[in-house]
Design a protein around this nucleic acid. Sequence first.
DNA 1: TATTAGCACTCTAGAACGGAGAGTGCTAAC
DNA 2: GTTAGCACTCTCCGTTCTAGAGTGCTAATA
Lengths: 343, 343
Amino acid sequence: MTALTERKKKILEAVVSNYIETADPVGSRTIARTCRIGLSSATIRNEMADLEEMGYLSQPHTSAGRIPSQKGYRYYVDNLMPPGGPDEEETSAISRSLNADKMREIEQIIISAARVLSSITNHTSLIMGPQYKRSTFRQMRILPLDEKRGLVVLITDTGFIKNKVIELNQSLSPPELQQVVSYLNQKLFGLSIDQVTTSLINELKRDLFRRMELLEQAFILLEESLKEEEQVRVFLGGTTNILNQPEFKDVEKIRRMLSLFEQESLLFKILERNLGKEGVVVQIGTENMVEEINECTLITATYKINNRNLGTVGVLGPTRMDYSRVIGVVRCLVDKLNESLNS
Amino acid sequence: MTALTERKKKILEAVVSNYIETADPVGSRTIARTCRIGLSSATIRNEMADLEEMGYLSQPHTSAGRIPSQKGYRYYVDNLMPPGGPDEEETSAISRSLNADKMREIEQIIISAARVLSSITNHTSLIMGPQYKRSTFRQMRILPLDEKRGLVVLITDTGFIKNKVIELNQSLSPPELQQVVSYLNQKLFGLSIDQVTTSLINELKRDLFRRMELLEQAFILLEESLKEEEQVRVFLGGTTNILNQPEFKDVEKIRRMLSLFEQESLLFKILERNLGKEGVVVQIGTENMVEEINECTLITATYKINNRNLGTVGVLGPTRMDYSRVIGVVRCLVDKLNESLNS
DNA sequence: TATTAGCACTCTAGAACGGAGAGTGCTAAC
DNA sequence: GTTAGCACTCTCCGTTCTAGAGTGCTAATA
């Protein structure tokens, strides 16, 4: 793996940036003309042949221009890419959309973020909703609704609020209920939701059971309301943006992409894998290890609440995307999102 | 507008059902062969020419077969359509998916309904989430979170639970807060959320203000948490199903449909217009009065909780759809949904 | 009078063809 | 090492042609 000469770098950079812009295979003549490198097309042809042999470029067919290979994009992102990002107007659009009406509901903020991200990048955005499991138990309440039912409210340190209607054991008097609830609050406070596992609950149950024999029912319910929270939502923005990309003019490809978007659990896995990685992560083509998006690039970053990695935001588009710009936008958005969520 | 002869009805029925099945314009020969009406293709040709003149059929071009016009479909639905609906297996699939784990969260049930509806019909399903405004106020609680913030919980008779984090006025002591809350509960109980308008709140505020002068803050917050609820969610299922329809093999059409699906408020308007209409409503082509779905048929029905019309469920597909089947499925689904929500 | 057989006509979809244009690789000259 | 020149390849796009399906009309038939 020898390093590229300066000239090869220049040419590779020219091919990639040109192809990003036009989506057409780029020929030697084009490069000779556009970037005023003092070389003839023939020389460039030779260099391009080299670059192809080394795996940075490829040819759709003889007598077409070259397009970057996955390796070519990777080299571009790692070494050649110019700095870029949102301009002031876009930056302030991001800020505005996240702070509008100083909304307090996390979900609203996330949806808003997905929307602005897709509209600025012109790609599809995906944002993993905050992960409940990584939060810390803060308090629990039970509100009686009527004779038979009650509302369990769980609150975490990250502002997550979960409620669930439960059947109440009739034999529980309000004061008894109150007693259980405050006992639980005391015991569970500060534990991460992950730690509030079934086994811990069982332990508590045994402990409490000795003193108050009526309350089994209540525990089953707490257990249930925690268990169910496994599923985390993924919010999408601009799913139709892929239709604007010339590489998706084939209905069959569109179908595959869109049906991917309907599989929330798969999207979740894709995003979760990048949860907690430092900075902005770029996964080009097969690097993301998911067959359905082998022809796409995924750019992700992790957002935090209370200094915990709670979720991932990402942009999905064709490998031919404006890397420097999108990377800059994602970075900007995550920063603002962190500000907004931690204020 | 003279009535159709028996023979014309038979032929129209044959054209429509044939076209629904094959998506190809149907010719006179086909009809002469398939439905064993004792007539030659020439006779059928004459009758079809009549039907075209009367507006029930149309021709994509000379020397193609006929396809039903909007008027033709309408006549078919009103007069000719055979009975149809889900088979036993599908019926039980609907039941199962709505009762699974006897889930109590309305939203979960609705999502589940959207999913099963689209998978059985092979079309896109849209379901309007339950309309908050049409519910009745049941009770309100305020849980203190920390020194500065509290959680307002509103509960309606239809099982709708809304919570919102609010800034608490420091000068409110817990007992004072409690007093306000119970006052409000007493005053608002049983009113429809629609009735709890800003003006009523203002009135209460004046009333209460005389007695307790510190609590203005609390009212602003109640007001806010009600106001925000305007937006109602629309849940979609099977949005990619339209890609399977041959009438949507054009990328441009797909784009228009899909971007319609991203406009939740428009979808909401479409569904809301049919809220409360009796039975299953079929709107063919331009009948639905929305330009974006002029080439589609929308089949809707209203579901209820506590005997109130809370939301609309619908199926959207090309005008060429299996009417009797889809109508039957929608009817079945709404019945089960009502059972499930009111149990 | 209603129905049918026959036939000429129309229109589309798809295959076959051909030329223009873009780009390449190679060779020989600079 | 670089460049000019040239033959070659491949795609794209418009044209032409044919097969096939279906029609409308006319004349014969029951």
